[in-house]
């Protein structure tokens, strides 16, 4: 058993039978290793899974005890971060325009094809690709320039949220659970951008992170 905090939409009833929420392994864009993600019913939404993990924790769940004391969170994630992994791979391999369903192929992570079903994928993919239409069919190729522009918007949005939520971003080391009465006015705009860049870098590979920092 696991204890998980998820948005309500995760537990919406599926429109089709046998297409309820699905936990699946996909390639983490930052590490290149497998990580667990969650698709909502009908695969419309993608969620990343994080665990709050303190070493000395366990659960009582009903009339049972469970060693693993992790508390899981499923939070919405932009599927384009995962689509990017395959666009960049395709660009490195041959640099050709391809249909998305041929780009999103991975023997190790076969569920990556489900990213196509996410509502936002087709709606927003133009932010990170060059597109061509031939014979009514669309073909895509990674665009670094467009991707960096898109990522910058992500960073800017993140900066706004960090400020709004009073997240501590300055260099001083302090536990996040310590709540000071003092407003964090010491942080500069640079601090916020650096912090936001760092957060976004959790969702992209190292090369792209470096390019984004330069950008």
């Amino acid at each position: 058993q696991w204890v998980m905090v998820v948005p309500e939409s995760v537990t919406d009833l599926p429109k089709k039978p046998n297409s309820g929420p699905l936990f699946t392994r996909l390639c983490n864009p930052s590490t290149g290793q497998a990580a667990l993600y969650l698709f909502s019913s009908d695969s419309r939404q993608l969620f990343e899974l994080k665990a709050f993990h303190e070493e000395y924790r366990s659960w009582f769940i009903g009339q049972a005890v469970q060693q693993d004391g992790r508390l899981f969170f499923a939070t919405p994630m932009d599927p384009l971060f995962l689509v990017l992994v395959y666009l960049i791979k395709s660009e490195k391999e041959h640099g050709k325009f391809q249909p998305l369903d041929q780009i999103l192929v991975d023997e190790e992570f076969p569920s990556c094809s489900m990213l196509l079903q996410c509502t936002s994928t087709s709606r927003t993919i133009h932010h990170i690709v060059e597109e061509k239409e031939i014979g009514g069919k669309k073909f895509y190729k990674f665009s670094e320039e467009k991707t960096l522009k898109w990522l910058k918007k992500k960073v800017d949005q993140t900066v706004k949220v960090l400020k709004c939520h009073d997240v501590r971003v300055d260099a001083r080391v302090q536990t996040a659970t310590f709540i000071s009465g003092k407003q964090f006015t010491d942080a500069t705009e640079d601090d916020y951008i650096r912090y936001a860049h760092g957060l976004i870098s959790e969702y992209i590979n190292e090369d792209l992170s470096t390019a984004l920092a330069k950008y």
Binding site: N28, Q33, A35, E48, K50, V167, T175, G198, L199, E202
Partner: peptide, 20 residues
């Protein structure tokens, strides 16, 4: 060694989940 997690996550003891 892989890139360490961003401080936002380790300050809050949040980890990426690789398995259940």
């Amino acid at each position: 060694t892989r890139r360490p997690a961003h401080r936002f996550f380790y300050e809050r003891k949040l980890e990426t989940v690789t398995s259940l």
